[in-house]
Design a protein around this nucleic acid. Structure first.
Lengths: 198, 198
DNA sequence: TAATGCTGACTGACCAGTCAGTCATAAAGA
DNA sequence: TCTTTATGACTGACTGGTCAGTCAGCATTA
């Protein structure tokens, strides 16, 4: 019984792990279902027993990855401490994920491109970025309410912080040797928060 | 004679225009050479008389687009005025290109993804971002030298500005209704420059 | 014996790139 | 001036290869 119900989950995990490896090596379009089958140690047919198709593999992957990041941020909003300390904690947390991000982010970019053409993908990212901005927004409001930050448009600040995060990460990915991700993220955050400190 | 030598250029322009339309509608991978042929009013064979293949179409397109943006920035570095005014001018210039950016940027993202896997594409973007950062860096040094900005690490500031630009544009593309690109870019720039003003 | 989990050869659609052939025009010859 | 030959721009049917997804059948277990 335990095995019987556990099997599908185990197989899904096994397939997703293989898919992550293959997608991050080859990208979505270049990746072949045969490669994923081989990497997973299962047959191609088996993939279709657990997932309806190639697209489902990538969306499941991205969804779980982005959800984890969002979940951490959610926790921070309800934690004690200054906005500064909590955002620094967020940066440090993300820094720990940098290696897995290097595998996932190229796939995100392929999907950002798709998002700008396909309704369904667009809704997915719109919701993700929306929730991300809402959490930042909420934290900034806390900072203003507690007298840590100046009166300022919280949404605008949230967009600046989120945008810097996205953009700096992109620049870093393009050439990781030119600067240290964590140091740059921290100094950028400090600069913005200094400008907004009371 | 005039017509004879002008023809290849005219045809190339005609093909690139069609390619822009088709690529921005369908993306690089989904776009078919047959579609581009039809959109250009030429036959598929003719495309191969003027370009060696599909890849050459997209690289030519992106190259000319990024070069134009870089060229404008280059001009700004040698222009009179404060750093603030010149960067505001840059934002206003880019704002004017927003519509054509909406067609081109999805392709960029597809290529960012490719850049993270393929040596040749990586070199292309590395060089582009490198030159972009160099120009910003140079302008910030001018600001420091002229007493407009505090002593600060110019590279770090350049990375923050360039990163914000990239990231804010990405967020905006994902949902252009949530905020105004120009207003957000300007307020972000003002905040950063205020923090660095003497 | 039946059910479940899985296999992998196969199919059909797709598409980048090719190339034998067309056609309009120009140059050469009658 | 009329005819023939040459040129080069262009065409589009075709090829060769790829790959997502299918399904008839096998192996293992209950």
């Amino acid at each position: 019984m335990a095995t019987r119900t556990a099997l599908p989950d185990e197989r899904k995990r096994q397939i997703l792990e293989a898919a992550t490896a293959v997608f991050s090596r080859s990208g979505y379009h270049e990746a072949r279902m045969d490669d994923i089958a081989e990497a997973s140690g299962l047959s191609k047919g088996a993939l279709y027993l657990y997932f309806p198709g190639k697209a489902a593999l990538i969306t499941t992957l991205l969804e779980s990855h982005l959800d984890r990041s969002l979940h951490f941020m959610q926790g921070l909003v309800h934690r004690e401490g200054t906005v500064r300390d909590r955002l620094l904690a967020y940066i440090r947390h993300e820094a720990g994920e940098l290696e897995s991000m290097r595998a996932i982010l190229p796939l995100c970019y392929e999907f950002y491109a798709a998002a700008l053409r396909e309704q369904e993908v667009a809704a997915f990212f719109k919701s993700y970025f929306g929730r991300y901005l809402d959490l930042l927004d909420q934290m900034i409001r806390q900072g203003i309410g507690r007298g840590e930050l100046k009166q300022t448009d919280p949404r605008q600040t949230a967009i600046l912080l989120a945008g810097s995060h996205e953009g700096l990460t992109l620049l870093w990915l393009m050439d990781p040797t030119t600067f240290d991700w964590t140091a740059q993220m921290e100094s950028s955050l400090q600069l913005v928060l200094d400008a907004l400190a009371v």
